[in-house]
Design a protein around this nucleic acid. Sequence first.
DNA 1: TACTTTTCGAGAATAGTTATCAATTACGCA
DNA 2: TGCGTAATTGATAACTATTCTCGAAAAGTA
Lengths: 152, 152
Amino acid sequence: MAQEQKTLLAATDKLKEYKIKNTPQRQVILSYLMTSHDHPSIEMIFNYVRGNGFSVSLATVYNTLQLLIDNNLIIEIAADSGGHMRYDYFETPHYHVICVNCNKIVDVYNDKYKKNEEDAQLETGFQVFNSQYEVYGLCPECQKKLADNKSY
Amino acid sequence: MAQEQKTLLAATDKLKEYKIKNTPQRQVILSYLMTSHDHPSIEMIFNYVRGNGFSVSLATVYNTLQLLIDNNLIIEIAADSGGHMRYDYFETPHYHVICVNCNKIVDVYNDKYKKNEEDAQLETGFQVFNSQYEVYGLCPECQKKLADNKSY
DNA sequence: TACTTTTCGAGAATAGTTATCAATTACGCA
DNA sequence: TGCGTAATTGATAACTATTCTCGAAAAGTA
Ligand SMILES: [Mn+2]
Ligand SMILES: [Mn+2]
Ligand SMILES: [Zn+2]
Ligand SMILES: [Zn+2]
C-alpha cells in the first residue's frame, strides 16, 4: 500500500479515536500535519489539499484547524514574522527554535520545559492543560549569510 | 514630582540608552509598558496614549511597538484567543500563564525555563537571542465559573 | 434507504495590519 | 542658539488574514 494511503488511514483512525466526524478534507489536513515536518501555514495546507486532488475552501481549512486545536491534536505557533500562524501535530512534546531572519522552525524533542507546568499550577492556582516553549535566534545558514553581507 | 512624570523620565532614559530617537509618543507608549502589569493590546495602548492627552495614530503605535521589539525592550505575546497580540516590557525574565477562557495573563517570575536556551543552541546550532514560555490553563475564577454552570 | 445533523464552499463581510506621503519634529553640528 | 537633514508622525487608503453566511452536499444512524 502506498505511503500516502497509510497516512490517510492513520488520520482516519485518529479522527475516530477523538470522535470527530470523518470527512475527506479532515483526513487530508490531519494526515498532512501528522507527517509533514515543516509546520505549515494555512496557505500551505490549503495548497496541499487542493494539490492532492481534493476540493477544499479556505473556510474549511480554518474550521478544521480550529477543531483540531480544540481537541488538543495540534498546536498553533505564532512563529512567522509575516504574521502567519503555523500549525503542528503535537503528539510528542517538543519545543521550537525559530529563526528570526528566515522563519525556519526547528523541533527539539526534549520535554524538560514541561516540568515548569507544575510550578505554574502551584504558583497561580490555574488548572494547567499544556504549555509551549519557543526559542528565538539565527539559524546557521542565516548566521553565515549575514556574516558574509557584513564583510563588504 | 508626580509618579506619571517619573515614569515618563524613566522611559526617556531608556530610549536614550538604546539610542532610539525620542518622541512624545514613544515616551508615553514605553512608560505605559514599563509600569502596567496588564500586557496591553494595541487598542489598549492606543487608548491609553490618547486618554493621557497625547496625539497618536494607530500606525505610530504599530511602528513604535515594532521598534521596541526589535530593540529587545518588549516582547509580543500571542495570548489572546481573539487573535490580538499583547505587549509586555521584558526587563526581568518571567513567563506567562494564560487563561484559555478569559485571556487573563499572569506573570510568573521564575527564569528556570531560560536554562533550555543553552540546550537549544547546542542542539540546533542557532545563535540564540531569547526565549518565551507560555502555560495554558483555566484561572481560578474561570474554574469556579465553569463548575457552577455545569451543576444545573 | 430515509432521515437528521453536520459540514462544505464560494463569496461577502469584517477587522487587524501595513503602506502612503505631505507636514512636522528631533537632533547633530556649525 | 539656529540650521539642515533625516526621521517620525498621522489621516486615510490599501491590503490581507480570518470569519460569516447560507444553500447544497455529505456523513452518520437505524
Ligand atoms: Mn514542531
Ligand atoms: Mn509579563
Ligand atoms: Zn534562518
Ligand atoms: Zn479565566
